[in-house]
């Protein structure tokens, strides 16, 4: 546990030093400013978009960028020859991103409370974050596996956005018809939306919530088992002299 705590603290320090946390905060401030100018109902309609962008797009990009830096500076290899497992390394990334998203959502939530006297249901929100973050951390890791350089990472990220995130966002912002929802019902981003939206909906379909929770956790575990872990050492040590 002490090691995980140390890894998480180290990750946070690096997020700050490499200005990745600042970038994340700047995006949060954009949502806050939007919240200031929009009416409460308008912002509530916009919230799913904010949730999805923060949990999926920002998390994948942050993890991809971190992995890129760690690979480029060979620090990932240096960690691999330390007494820690790949799982501990990945777990620390998940925990840091859960905390990062939680901080961002607390900022957005607090601003909504002070600006519009509106309060999220933070228990549901945090539960949702905990359930979905691993999936997008793994997406970020897999993106870094298949990207030769930072340009390729950004291109792959764009493809991921178009395939995975845009259909859901399209429906949220009204540029795609709601009829496509039946086709993307089990898309991880739709599942993410349903889990996070529980924090501001008046009533929650508990059965569907449980199904969604089990589904996203299972998909994440499968990604970890068959996608992330098997290729981790290979990725980390590919350009290593030793």
């Amino acid at each position: 546990m002490a090691k995980i705590k140390h890894l998480v603290s180290g990750e946070f320090t690096r997020l700050a030093k490499y200005n990745l946390f600042t970038a994340s905060l700047v995006v949060a401030m954009v949502w806050v400013v939007m919240g200031y100018f929009l009416e409460l109902d308008e912002f509530k309609a916009f919230l799913p978009f904010v949730f999805l962008m923060e949990t999926s797009a920002m998390t994948s990009l942050l993890v991809g960028a971190e992995m890129f830096y760690e690979k480029k500076e060979h620090t990932i290899s240096s960690m691999l020859i330390s007494p820690m497992t790949e799982f501990e390394y990945i777990l620390s990334k998940i925990l840091v991103n859960i905390l990062n998203i939680a901080i961002i959502f607390v900022i957005i939530g607090a601003s909504m409370y002070f600006l519009k006297a509106y309060l999220f249901n933070f228990q549901w929100l945090f539960l949702g974050i905990i359930l979905v973050t691993s999936f997008y951390v793994f997406i970020g890791i897999l993106l870094s596996y298949i990207s030769k350089d930072f340009t390729a990472l950004l291109l792959n990220y764009m493809v991921m956005m178009i395939v995975l995130v845009l259909p859901s966002i399209g429906v949220v912002i009204g540029i795609l018809p709601e009829s496509i929802l039946e086709y993307i019902f089990w898309s991880p981003t739709e599942v993410t939306l349903r889990l996070l939206n529980a924090s501001f909906l008046d009533s929650i379909d508990i059965v569907q919530y449980l199904k969604d929770a089990v589904y996203i956790v299972l998909v994440s575990l499968l990604m970890l088992r068959y996608g992330v872990l098997p290729y981790f050492k290979d990725y980390a040590t590919k350009d290593l002299g030793v």
């Binding site: 690096r14 030093k17 240096s78 020859i81 007494p83 820690m84 002299g241 030793v242």
Partner: peptide
């Protein structure tokens, strides 16, 4: 297991430090 690394040290040819730390 990973305890093995308590007993070894590896000095790589290329720099292996976080540049912004």
């Amino acid at each position: 297991n990973d305890v093995f690394y308590e007993d070894i040290g590896v000095c790589f040819e290329m720099p292996i430090s976080f540049s912004k730390l």
